[in-house]
Design a protein around this nucleic acid. Structure first.
Lengths: 203, 203, 203, 203
DNA sequence: GATGAATGAGCTTTCATTCAT
DNA sequence: AATGAATGAAAGCTCATTCAT
């Protein structure tokens, strides 16, 4: 399908330019120049500048969602450890593999307009919901210490997001695994009951 | 000082409107309407729309800086605990007391343009530097566990920022002290050597 | 009279600034800054920016008019030569002694608006009228060769004006007398019947 | 070339309006109204109001330059006479054929801003340079009397310019040839050695 | 008389979007 | 399907002038 291919071309160009210059500083002119198409052609595939941006954002949010499956608690502590490890790695690598999209999500999509804000809050609400569910489950299983699950879910999310932001900004020259290890070590201690922390490290 | 008073009026209106509508969606027209002044009057006090925004942002960054004094480590563990507690409370209350400014910093100032981005990164660099210094100091004192100070400094910053963001968004109906307690409990466990965590809680 | 003194102060400042920056590039702000008075004070003495400009221009046009008295032809050729010499010297020295006003007249007042244009044309019409009258008279006396008085009056005026313009622009480092001599030598030859030219030079 | 045609359309409208209302009194609104195009279209072809004006001015200066070729002195006195006649006719007809451009050059471009002033002075410097060269050459050939070439070059230029200005202003109902004859007769007498003037008229 | 803060009409310019070809 | 010239609403900003003190 040629049509689909052309659509993807535009999306790629838009992604690149939005990430590099920001939403407002990017004009439709920048996108079509990068893409080598005419102004009118752009509007043949996307209704508006806002619409391309939304498409890009939606795709990345979808991608992120897939990387965070619900935790299966029936597989024992060792299995849980592996799941958590995989989830964190999955999310972080989603960012790492799509730096442009990540930059757009973390830097450009913030404060764009009311509707985008709602979309992001909705996404994060789901994301935090999953974290909260996991925390509650952990508390029921006795492995997570007593804490306010809402505040702590936000903390976890915020700490990961900020680390990602700084890695993307190019300040950290470290590899993904090291980042995952640090984040896990940090949160394990922050969340789990003391007895488990010891055991965890021995796993 | 009538002049200073008028300047403050404009700043207040600008703060309100920027926080409510966002930087780009806000026109000078919105600010002067809220303020009840003429177009020209606005430009008598501020050189441009960007300039008012910058003034607001700078003021808030300055305010935040004042709330984060360097930690005095010579006062014993109990004194350190109090300092940390005060610092966290200080920063969070700076946000709580200036919700508009906070919203502007966290939502509007992100991705505005290259120069604002640099300003923010510079500010955060200082902020993270202080956290890192404290972590390194803690490690030297044997109270902070071995960890990558850069990643963890980012984590701490990110976790606090995200919590603030969500409190501002109005979803949390909790009071400041509770938030501070949760954040501290979270980070104490995440950072300190196990022996200290126990002692800490007993303080 | 203090009032008159203040008025002159403003006129002097305005003259200076208009000559230096041009009418449009000059703001009321420039004038009052140079003058050290308040905005409102300016409008106490002059109804508008245009009005100050007009006042300056009128004054200079008046000054110029005084320097060009009608020629008295009853005094013999030698007397006429002296009169012409004095008139040319008078006009040129009016420019030389008021370089700011001259610059304003020659560079700024051109093409300002319909009304100024009319004022200037009227002035020049009078000026050219005097020259034409002198030419006609000269023809009647048999000392001016046959020529189209309108065209030649314009030529005379234009040649003098352009020389003044260039002197003002600072390109010529010559003194007034030399300029007068050249202009006279130029026009005498251009205008007079051949026999007279010779006689003229011997006078 | 539709694009070039549209560009010319805008230039024509701009020329007309600038000549009629003057640079400052003319708004982009006036130009596009005269032209029947939208605001944006204007900026598609010209970067700014100043830019159109400059384009018009440059074009006319270029046109004038072409009309003033260097004089070839090797062709004998009769040939020189013809060349001078042709040059003067050429320049004057350039003005006559482009009254709007001429009005813009003579009335609007004066005192617009520093940069335009420099452009004009540069052009006139070249123009006067050519005249001066011709005068010096004439002196070497013994046909031009002793005179200050700089002052007289300015006189010549000024006299021609002023005549043009008045013709454009519509006060003169005479034809071009007559004007040329008068200007030549005037300057021949003013410049040449007496013996030549006589010979000249006999040619 | 003097002040200078306040005014607002009006300017130039931008850019997402449309539409005739 | 593709083009790119044309559009025009809307933005930021200036500055001569006014007027309450």
């Amino acid at each position: 399908m040629l049509r689909e291919h052309r659509r993807q071309q535009i999306l790629e160009s838009a992604k690149k330019v939005f990430a590099a210059k920001g939403y407002h500083a990017t004009g439709v002119a920048d996108i079509i120049k990068d893409c080598g198409i005419a102004r009118g052609t752009f509007y043949l595939y996307f209704g508006s500048k806002r619409n391309v941006f939304e498409t890009i954002l939606d795709a990345f949010l979808e991608l992120l969602k897939e990387r965070i499956p619900r935790i299966d608690e029936t597989v024992g502590i060792e299995g849980i450890k592996k799941q958590i490890h995989d989830n964190v790695t999955g999310v972080l690598s989603a960012y790492a593999e799509n730096p442009d999209m990540a930059r757009i999500l973390l830097n450009e999509a913030v404060g764009l307009d009311k509707e985008f804000d709602r979309k992001l809050w909705d996404f994060y609400k789901d994301f935090l919901g999953l974290i909260e569910d996991a925390l509650v489950l952990g508390q029921e299983m006795g492995i997570v210490r007593p804490l306010d699950t809402r505040i702590i879910a936000a903390s976890i999310h915020g700490s990961m997001q900020e680390v990602v932001r700084r890695v993307l900004h190019g300040r950290f020259d470290m590899d993904l695994d090291q980042v995952v290890e640090e984040i896990l070590a940090y949160n394990i201690r922050a969340l789990f009951v003391p007895e488990l922390v010891e055991a965890w490290d021995r796993l």
